[in-house]
């Protein structure tokens, strides 16, 4: 059904997206699809990495670990944003186009009051992406 599955990853909160990671791996095994883990970082140093290059390297390690753990084909796609707090959704949508994803598996929280002001990233991707979007709560 799907050939290329994209999974947005927040490397600082990997524990919170385990369900989405498992779902993506399950879909990938079932369809023989490859998974691309996409993470958005900034040019400024963060807790995860001192530079964009180091950030990309860490995402690569993460993708490799996922591939080994789930027995799937996985790639990493790191993107640097000028203002990740705000531009995350647009950056992810661009990334989905760039890598040619036909399915996005994204973790999201249970909707609350704040979602009326700031739609969740999952909600925003589902509304705007051409690809199928699987929102995992």
């Amino acid at each position: 059904m799907f050939e290329k599955i994209m999974v947005p990853v927040d490397l600082a909160h990997v524990g919170k997206i385990e369900k989405a990671l498992g779902t993506a791996a399950m879909l990938a095994r079932q369809d023989g699809a490859s998974v691309t883990y996409v993470a958005v970082g900034s040019a400024a140093p963060s807790a995860l990495a001192h530079s964009p290059a180091e950030f990309a390297e860490k995402l690569g390690d993460f993708a490799k670990a996922q591939a080994d753990a789930h027995g799937i084909t996985a790639e990493a796609h790191a993107v640097t944003s000028h203002d990740p707090s705000i531009d995350l959704d647009d950056t992810l949508l661009h990334a989905a186009k760039d890598i040619g994803a036909d399915c996005i598996v994204v973790a999201s929280h249970i909707p609350n009051l704040a979602d009326h002001l700031w739609p969740s990233h999952g909600g925003s991707l589902a509304r705007r992406s051409d690809a199928s979007v699987f929102v995992v709560r």
Partner: peptide, 14 residues
């Protein structure tokens, strides 16, 4: 599961 957030590692800048 690899929790890379605990690993600041040796940096490889640009």
């Amino acid at each position: 599961m690899t929790d890379v957030s605990d690993d600041t590692g040796v940096p490889a800048p640009e």
